[in-house]
């Protein structure tokens, strides 16, 4: 048996890999790409919420939103650290992100139009993300799995914050309720695209190496199981007439998500992609002197 085949058997039978262990180049490259995309998504994912810090309806909400933004940036820090130990320096990862060579999740390419969007992001987008992240707790790459434990723990606060925002609005005026319904309609398409296309598990190398432990469709089904009832119990409508749970098939049926939109958006052509990347570039340039000063001082 080749060492590659042995490695594959090791990870498929539950074995784990540490940073200093020998690993196939293909595995290392897949890890860096996958984990960097996650780090990028945490970093870019705060921008839709950042837009609402100054417009939050109460001081309590402003503080909670600021804390959530700090959490997500903290996750990016932890995740980029994991990439660095795999041989991908953070500055290079940021170059790749800002020059459009690396991706981040589709949902962070859209504008946040109302406070209803902020609630739906913290509630449903974070829920969809947690479903994915929980499937990483058993990742074959142990340093990533360990950091996911901390991240999932912090994300659980975010969902509560999101539900609290949503419940306050749903218990409010007709106008507030309408803002939530409009946000659910706006975000449903991107949410259904979020977990990706139904790729056959045997063709998904990320699954084969047990970097993630569940295929895209299983993750989407898990999200629908958990959250469609929560949406409907508040009297909110999901904007998909075909969406229903089929007892016979034992799964949710739904209108085919717009995969062209997904491809367009994640390749940097979403409605807010250019603005978000531009803001990140300007921030990085504006803060460059701080990094120089800190490093010079320490040297």
């Amino acid at each position: 048996m080749t060492s590659e085949a042995q490695f594959l058997e090791h990870v498929q039978s539950g074995g784990v890999v540490e940073a200093g262990d020998p690993m196939p180049d293909e595995y290392r490259a897949l890890l860096v790409k996958f984990i960097a995309m996650h780090g990028n998504s945490e970093l870019m994912g705060v921008l839709p919420e950042r837009d609402w810090i100054l417009r939050a309806p109460t001081l309590q909400r402003k503080l909670a939103l600021t804390a959530k933004v700090q959490d997500e940036v903290g996750h990016a820090q932890l995740i980029y650290r994991v990439c660095e130990d795999l041989g991908a320096p953070r500055e290079e990862l940021l170059d790749d992100l800002l020059e459009g060579r690396a991706k981040f999740h589709n949902v962070f390419h859209y504008p946040t139009r109302t406070w209803g969007d902020v609630g739906v992001i913290a509630w449903l987008i974070d829920a969809a993300a947690i479903v994915s992240q929980k499937a990483l707790l058993k990742c074959s790459y142990a340093p990533y799995a360990r950091i996911m434990k901390k991240i999932c723990w912090e994300e659980s606060f975010h969902i509560l914050h999101g539900r609290d925002v949503i419940l306050a609005m749903m218990n409010g005026t007709d106008e507030q309720r309408e803002l939530v319904q409009e946000a659910v309609i706006r975000w449903w398409g991107p949410i259904m695209q979020f977990h990706g296309t139904r790729m056959p598990p045997e063709k998904d190398l990320v699954l084969q190496y047990r970097i993630k432990t569940k295929d895209n469709e299983s993750l989407r089904q898990e999200f629908l199981d958990g959250y469609v009832p929560q949406i409907r119990e508040l009297g909110l409508e999901v904007p998909d007439p075909a969406l229903r749970y089929d007892e016979g098939e034992g799964r949710w049926l739904y209108t085919e998500p717009d995969w062209d939109e997904l491809r367009q958006v994640v390749s940097g052509h979403g409605p807010a992609s250019a603005d978000r990347l531009d803001l990140r570039r300007r921030m990085r340039d504006a803060n460059a002197w701080v990094r120089r000063a800190v490093l010079a001082d320490a040297a």
């Binding site: 700090q70 903290g74 820090q77 932890l78 650290r81 901390k150 912090e154």
Partner: peptide, 24 residues
């Protein structure tokens, strides 16, 4: 063991660790 962080010196390491691993 909880993880790792990058910091220029001990003072920054203390501050980052406090924020990354103890703010709650």
């Amino acid at each position: 063991h909880a993880g790792s962080l990058e910091a220029a010196d001990e003072a920054f390491a203390r501050a980052y660790a406090h924020e990354l691993y103890g703010r709650r």
